[in-house]
């Protein structure tokens, strides 16, 4: 499969680009419409966090082939300020109460697997996988 792996996030419109690329990949992998919408929303959320808090970064896609299943992996990374208290941002009600949207707990719900690495002052990398059902 010809695969353009990454979308750079520098401006708000890039969020749309990341969604578009993610949706195309999801369609190719055979995700249904509901899952496509969920993946696109998760990508939005991740890309938006980069745009709002780090200023720039990138969202990359990988197809994961395992013996019994196939999935799409979304990797969002930036070299922004990092997250000081990960437990706090992973708490329900933390970002939504401020009206910022679904937040990282939302991304975790939309996807099947979620991993976050962040270092204060160095940046953040979030990996999320959705398996084809």
């Amino acid at each position: 499969m010809d695969f353009k792996p990454c979308v750079n996030i520098n401006k708000e419109l890039d969020i749309v680009g990341a969604r578009q690329l993610g949706r195309t990949r999801a369609k190719e992998l055979g995700f249904g419409t509901v899952d496509q919408a969920r993946i696109a929303t998760a990508i939005s959320e991740l890309a938006r966090n980069i745009y709002l808090y780090a200023g720039k970064g990138k969202v990359c896609f990988e197809v994961i082939d395992q013996l019994d299943k196939q999935g799409l992996k979304v990797v969002a990374s930036d070299e922004g300020p990092g997250i000081r208290d990960i437990s706090q941002v992973m708490q329900d009600g933390y970002s939504t109460s401020g009206g910022l949207g679904a937040g990282l707990p939302g991304v975790k719900r939309l996807m099947d697997h979620f991993e976050i690495h962040s270092e204060w002052g160095k940046g953040t990398e979030i990996q999320a996988i959705k398996w084809v059902r």
Binding site: A37, G93, A102, P105, G106, L110
Partner: peptide
């Protein structure tokens, strides 16, 4: 419409959890 409802679905789940 489906796309527009995704965030409502998340809010519902969050609500449930809270």
């Amino acid at each position: 419409l489906l796309e527009a409802m995704i965030s409502y679905g998340l809010a519902l789940q969050e609500n449930h959890f809270l």
